[in-house]
Amino acid sequence: MEEHDTIDVTIVLPVYNAEEWLDECLQSISLQPKCFRGTIQLSVFNDSSTDTSAEILESWKPKLEDAGISVVIGSHHSKSPLGVGFAKNKAVGQSHGRFLCFQDADDVMEEERIELQYGEAKIHSSSIIGCRFRRSPADSTKRYTKWCNNLTQKQLIMQVYTSHGPTVIMPTWFCSREVFNKVGGFNEEGKGVPEDLIFFLEHLKQGGSVYRVDRCLLMYRYHPQAATHSVHCDTIWKIRMSAIQERVLSQWGSLTIWNAGKQGRKFYRSLTEKNKKKVIAFCDVDIKKIRKGVYNYEESQETPKPQIPILHFSDAKPPFIICVKLDLTGGGFESNLSSMNLKEGIDYYHFG
């Protein structure tokens, strides 16, 4: 029997200058066998750390092995790290588990994480399995945490085009090796590239699904050094625009953009020329915008310039692309949307 047939779960741990958090992270990993009775491997890839991360990893190896977790540590040394995508791919490549549990070195998993996600991954074999999480510090990213933890199962699939990124956060991912191999690994372009979002959207494009264990199984740390802060919002915008045009707008003959303000106009200007022609109106609640009557697309090379009507939302026709951020209007927007009796994923998609 080959080695990869004997290991149930590999914990994938990319590391770069994580000395401040590694002990707590590895301690949480060491407790997994208390709940999970299968076989566990920890696969670490140290991507050019210049702090004491390597020493901490070596000091924990015998402790983890005593707890019943096999450990493989790979490393790369250069003047600068090659990035999270590279490190995760290397960690997966040197591993042998039938299932992969992704963990960031600055986060902490609960004792029952592997046990609960493993059970769901066997049932939902073509899915990325996530879970709920808590933030540390507790008051950081409140809107984002609320949104992510309270999505319904259907919204995990439908709200993938919002500015928040994947509907299940990368440090909670758990999936079969087959799911990972089908996508082909993470983008390795390095700093500034959202490798998790690219992987997630490609997974969905290929027919994969998403599932969430509705238990808090991870402490997700917020700090200035986190890799996510290096990704520019314009990069994420372009990826989102490409995905929604390919997967949604290609199926629609017309659409209304909900928001005649800055974000709605940016969405319109970012469309392909073919999709711009599908826009029949903007809609809004702002009386000044509605009284203006039209949006003049001055940047157009056409003569005459396109003029898009601006309507009150109650007079507009679906399907809608909603470019309004959630949970910012004291429930006003959400109430207006609910009054329309529309179906998410059919009559509208969120892009805010």
Rank of each mutant, 00 (worst) to 15 (best):
residue 208 G to D: 06
residue 208 G to K: 01
residue 209 S to P: 10
residue 209 S to F: 04
residue 209 S to E: 11
residue 209 S to T: 15
residue 210 V to F: 01
residue 211 Y to K: 07
residue 212 R to N: 04
residue 212 R to E: 02
residue 213 V to L: 04
residue 214 D to M: 12
residue 215 R to S: 13
residue 215 R to F: 07
residue 215 R to E: 15
residue 217 L to N: 03
residue 217 L to K: 06
residue 218 L to G: 07
residue 218 L to E: 07
residue 219 M to F: 08
residue 220 Y to R: 08
residue 221 R to S: 11
residue 221 R to M: 05
residue 222 Y to L: 09
residue 222 Y to R: 14
residue 222 Y to A: 10
residue 223 H to T: 08
residue 225 Q to W: 12
residue 225 Q to N: 12
residue 226 A to H: 14
residue 226 A to Y: 08
residue 227 A to I: 11
residue 227 A to E: 06
residue 228 T to P: 01
residue 228 T to R: 09
residue 228 T to F: 10
residue 228 T to Y: 13
residue 229 H to I: 15
residue 230 S to E: 12
residue 230 S to G: 05
residue 230 S to W: 07
residue 231 V to E: 03
residue 231 V to N: 02
residue 232 H to A: 08
residue 232 H to I: 06
residue 232 H to W: 13
residue 234 D to R: 08
residue 234 D to T: 13
residue 236 I to R: 13
residue 236 I to H: 06
residue 237 W to A: 05
residue 237 W to S: 07
residue 238 K to G: 11
residue 238 K to D: 15
residue 240 R to K: 12
residue 240 R to F: 09
residue 240 R to Y: 10
residue 242 S to M: 07
residue 243 A to Y: 04
residue 244 I to V: 14
residue 244 I to A: 00
residue 245 Q to I: 03
residue 245 Q to R: 05
residue 246 E to V: 08
residue 246 E to Q: 14
residue 247 R to N: 11
residue 247 R to G: 08
residue 247 R to A: 15
residue 247 R to K: 10
residue 250 S to T: 12
residue 251 Q to V: 04
residue 251 Q to N: 11
residue 251 Q to E: 15
residue 252 W to E: 00
residue 253 G to Y: 01
residue 253 G to M: 04
residue 254 S to N: 08
residue 256 T to F: 01
residue 256 T to Y: 02
residue 257 I to N: 00
residue 258 W to L: 05
residue 258 W to V: 04
residue 258 W to F: 14
residue 259 N to W: 05
residue 261 G to K: 03
residue 261 G to A: 08
residue 261 G to V: 11
residue 262 K to G: 09
residue 262 K to W: 14
residue 263 Q to R: 14
residue 264 G to L: 02
residue 264 G to D: 01
residue 264 G to M: 02
residue 265 R to E: 05
residue 265 R to F: 05
residue 265 R to H: 09
residue 265 R to I: 06
residue 266 K to N: 09
residue 266 K to Q: 13
